[in-house]
Structure formats: structure tokens, C-alpha cells
């Protein structure tokens, strides 16, 4: 097992299956639709194992507002192929299935080829859109797998899926207090 400290970590698997095991006693397979949020706080030990095939996943590291918080592990099962935006995670106190000790909201969507979709607006937050798989077009800009897009002054215009796509959308409070004490996020 290995330790994480002061990182808020969302594991988002979209292909394959990863097996999680931790010192808190949880042992759980994580695959598409199963989300894991590890709020490492003062210390959290775990291991990841891949038993069959390979796994494609995104690990999102978020700086908490403060170091040495309580260690927490959260799991949430969501629809696998939601066409519309699905709110995965948000700050403590928000109405979201997974909670982050930071002013960040995380959403996902799986628009199909040819579908046009709106990008929501969160007042006071900056958007950051990341394409995990597939390709979308916004205005005359094509954004493909592992590419991202933001607009720091204006809302992001509507997008069109050029293929079946998986997208993650972040909203970030650029004025939030953060700690740089995270093992990964603090680097």
C-alpha cells in the first residue's frame, strides 16, 4: 500500500476494472460508473490492482482548503452513459453525491455523435472542460481526446459531439484558499 496526504483524489475509470483496497477496511472494484473520492487528509493508505486487461482512468488531484483534515473515503455509483451533465462532486455543504474540501465542482457527460449540448455556468467559478474520449467542436475549435478548453472571461459556448464522447467539466473558484501540503497536489 502507499500513502496519500492532503490530497482530494477523484478516481474516474471509463474502461476496465481497478481493484481498490485500503487500511480503512474497504475493498472494492472500480469500473465505469463507479466513482471513488479519497479525501486523504492527514493520511490515507491504499493500493490499486488491475487483475484483468488494462484500465483507462483519470485521477483528479484537488488541493484541499486546509491540511491535516480527517481522512475520508467515498464511493458513488452513477449512470454510465448519461447524455446530460451529471454533477459528481462539489464542495462540502453542496448537494452533490461526492464531497470535496474545496470550492470545485466536477461534472461529466457522454454526448453521442451529432448531439449539440450546452455548457453550464457556475457564477463565480471558472470552467475547465476536458475530453477523455472522442471529439467535440466548440465554435471552430476541435477538441479531441486528452485535450482541454477554458474561457476565463466568458461562458463556454455550446458544443457539438463529432463522435460519441466522454467529457469532464470542472468549475474552479480561483479565489479559494488552498493548502500546498498535498503529496501530489502540492507539487
Amino acid at each position: 500500500m502507499h500513502e496519500h496526504v492532503n490530497d482530494e483524489i477523484l478516481s474516474y475509470v471509463w474502461q476496465g476494472k481497478m481493484y481498490h483496497k485500503d487500511l480503512a477496511g474497504f475493498e472494492k472494484p472500480i469500473s465505469a460508473g463507479n466513482l471513488m473520492m479519497m479525501n486523504a487528509g492527514s493520511s490515507f493508505w491504499h493500493e490499486e490492482k488491475v487483475k484483468e486487461d488494462s484500465v483507462e482512468m483519470l485521477q483528479i488531484f484537488i488541493r484541499p482548503y486546509k491540511k491535516e483534515l480527517e481522512p475520508i473515503i467515498q464511493f458513488h455509483d452513477k449512470p454510465k452513459r448519461n447524455k446530460d451533465w451529471y454533477l459528481l462532486a462539489g464542495p462540502v455543504g453542496s448537494d452533490t453525491p461526492l464531497r470535496i474540501r474545496q470550492n470545485v465542482f466536477i461534472l461529466d457527460a457522454h454526448p453521442r455523435k451529432g448531439e449539440r449540448f450546452e455548457i453550464p455556468v457556475y457564477d463565480g467559478y471558472k470552467p475547465f472542460l476536458y475530453v477523455l474520449n472522442g471529439e467535440i467542436q466548440i465554435d471552430d475549435i476541435m477538441i479531441t481526446k486528452q485535450e482541454a478548453l477554458t474561457d476565463l472571461e466568458n461562458p463556454i459556448p455550446p458544443a457539438t459531439a463529432k463522435t460519441d464522447t466522454t467529457i469532464i467539466l470542472f468549475f474552479v473558484d480561483m479565489n479559494a484558499k488552498v493548502t500546498l501540503a498535498g503529496t501530489i497536489s502540492g507539487r
Binding site: M18, M57, L58, F61, R63, Q146
Partner: peptide
């Protein structure tokens, strides 16, 4: 980072 969101790791394990 973009402030609190440090990095993403699209990874193939």
C-alpha cells in the same frame, strides 16, 4: 494547476 485543481492523470494501467 488551475488553482485548486492540480493535475489530471489519464493513465492506462
Amino acid at each position: 494547476a488551475i488553482w485548486a485543481v492540480k493535475l489530471y492523470r489519464p493513465c492506462c494501467i
